[in-house]
Write a protein that binds this DNA or RNA. Structure first.
Lengths: 193, 193
DNA sequence: GAAAGTACTTGATGCAGATCAAGCACTTTC
DNA sequence: GAAAGTGCTTGATCTGCATCAAGTACTTTC
């Protein structure tokens, strides 16, 4: 149940057997079923969640009732409403399982303790955050400079796994285009070859 | 020359006199003039830069030659091409001073040493990165769900200082709209009152 | 296996914001 | 202080993608 977690952390910082065993204890394992929510907008986000198996998405619903996918999380990645998790304020995002999934939840206090008690964990999280920023900046630039088709092709190139596993609606929402447009783009792209 | 830096760090972690003095030594102070570049796309980004005074922007130029402002940095904030700084690969962004400015540069090695030698700095940077992520996610959602006018009003609300100090072109670029559209929006908004 | 729900496709139409173009105001230069 | 450069405004036109609408295919339910 913790293989992915340990290999993710182990790839960035050195971990001995003792550290590994200690580490595990801070996390709460949980199985969630497809369509199940682990966070509802308006609640306070209690955990930062590591995905061992399956796939989740975070999304907001705007004033017109349109959904916007903020993030997909597959095996080996983290998901949360960080603003809410860190501040204790109401979450803006919902988090929903897109497949039956297994996750490891880390609470606020547990995260603090973990960083104090297991050497290197502060560093691990810093590196994680850094990589996250790089990815987010790229996404911002993509939204600013690319057409619908270009965004689609770029995502295809960067995250083909997501393209295969997520529904077209959700991919469209992530790219910030309508499902209709995505459908037309797909047709066009497949005709070109 | 280091007041802003020390107060920024001091607000997130405890710093005694000794730590403060030690800290300063890792940074290279530099004065830059308006329009001067401190990073050119294609070079490797050597520093993460703290702004003591003035204002800078990072931006990319796309295939059609259009500029896109990724970030504004005013007093008390950091700016860099993080992907390049961390990986040693070619930078995608340019960084340019929008006013005469004073900055403190932190090199890769210096950053590492700083985190090892001054307690709490690892934590400081983690917190910095976290807040950055929250802001970036908000920006992504804004791009996805808001109209040009709404994005303008939101930025006005969140960062009125930037609206006053940056040129209209740069603000338009940051909002990912044309200067013409921004001009029209401004007129509209001022008429409404 | 009929019925209802859900996901994707395809077509017709509309619109927010881009592009193109020209003019105005202010600032820098020598 | 004339000339050139730079930034903002305003108008006319164009366009990529959204919206609305209807149809098809596949999946779930009992």
């Amino acid at each position: 149940m913790h293989e992915r977690l340990l290999s993710s952390i182990g790839s960035k910082i050195a971990l001995n057997e003792t550290a590994m065993n200690k580490l595990k204890q801070f996390f709460i394992p949980k199985k969630i079923r497809k369509r199940q929510y682990i966070l509802n907008a308006g609640d306070v986000c209690q955990y930062i969640t590591f995905v061992e198996k399956g796939m989740l998405r975070s999304f907001t619903v705007d004033d017109e009732g349109h959904e916007h996918v903020v993030q997909f999380a597959v095996e080996g990645s983290w998901i949360s409403d960080m603003a809410s998790f860190l501040s204790g304020k109401e979450a803006l995002y919902n988090i929903e399982a897109l497949e039956d999934s297994e996750v490891l939840n880390l609470g606020t206090q547990a995260m603090d303790d973990l960083m104090h008690q297991v050497p290197g964990m502060e560093r691990y999280f810093r590196l994680l955050m850094q990589n996250n920023i790089i990815a987010l900046q790229r996404r911002v630039v993509a939204y600013m400079s690319l057409s619908a088709e270009e965004k689609y092709l770029k995502l295809m190139e960067v995250a083909p796994d997501i393209m295969n596993r997520a529904s077209q609606q959700h991919i469209a929402s992530y790219l910030s285009i309508t499902p209709e447009t995505l459908s037309r783009i797909r047709k066009q792209v497949s005709n070109k070859k």
